[in-house]
Design a protein around this nucleic acid. Structure first.
Ligand SMILES: [Mn+2]
Ligand SMILES: [Mn+2]
Ligand SMILES: [Zn+2]
Ligand SMILES: [Zn+2]
Lengths: 132, 132
DNA sequence: AATCATTTTGATAACGATTATCATTATTTT
DNA sequence: AAAATAATGATAATCGTTATCAAAATGATT
């Protein structure tokens, strides 16, 4: 479960633990640079990929193709607006208790899950009704 | 719920109904061309966006940024491998019965939800253990 | 310590799905 | 018919991500 980690992986992991929120690769790049621990962008993507394959971090990819990274232990249930793209973090998880994906779990090694509700946020409901 | 639809929207909708599986925008482009109903790629993206905002179709975006489209009524619960990216469609839904996102539903208009389990498929479990 | 092999890194180019632009064509309204 | 509006398609631009490749760092071997 815990493979040997490179310096860059450890730096990223430490920052993710400290921030305790999901963050994009590009944001990671500027944030690390701001803390005078700058890493190349390619290195960041490489480290994220390695941590992802270990199951240490999880990824959520928005419909615009941008991905956000966070510790795998964090919650991942959102309410996402199809219009403005903003996501609202949900507190409770309807499935964590139940034996999720019971049969498939035997052979498929599950690291985490994401439950995403898609629709329109209040302001976008207005905006769309007005402009159409 | 059902806004006036352009010809291109109707063509895409008809094809989605017929195929009854999720399909990418690029695939749609070649498939429509194959059926001598060719549409411009920009038009396809425009139509997909409009149908999405109506709640008629749903989108699932892979971690590589590519999006797949299908009718909103179809199931959307997957087992996705972090290594090869392949997704396995799950049959049962652990949450459809329960009043999902109960409180938020009042103001946030939910069209559909996606429940995605991420991990490693059997073959990728082997592959990674061998090469490391 | 010096040499060699392996790993890690970073600058940059390449990639590819999506989006913006804009002129043309179709449709509707007056 | 004329004007206004909407829809379309070819193409350029965007942008997050991935591939490339040479340099630097690390570890092993003599
Ligand atoms: Mn959960
Ligand atoms: Mn369901
Ligand atoms: Zn919104
Ligand atoms: Zn796999």
């Amino acid at each position: 479960m815990s493979a040997p980690k490179t310096d860059s992986q450890q730096q990223i992991l430490a920052l993710l633990k400290q921030l305790n929120r999901e963050i994009s690769a590009q944001e990671l790049y500027v944030e690390l640079r701001r803390r005078s621990q700058s890493l190349g962008l390619a290195t960041i993507y490489r480290a994220l990929k390695a941590l992802k394959l270990e199951g240490t971090i999880q990824t959520r990819t928005l419909s615009n193709g941008e991905s956000f990274y966070s510790l795998a232990e964090a919650e991942q249930h959102y309410l996402t607006c199809l219009n403005c793209g903003k996501s609202i973090l949900l507190e409770n998880c309807p499935i964590c208790q139940e034996s999720a994906a019971s049969r498939e779990q035997e052979h498929f090694k599950i690291y985490y899950h994401i439950l995403d509700f898609f629709g329109l946020c209040p302001s976008c409901q207005h905006q769309i009704h007005v402009e159409s």
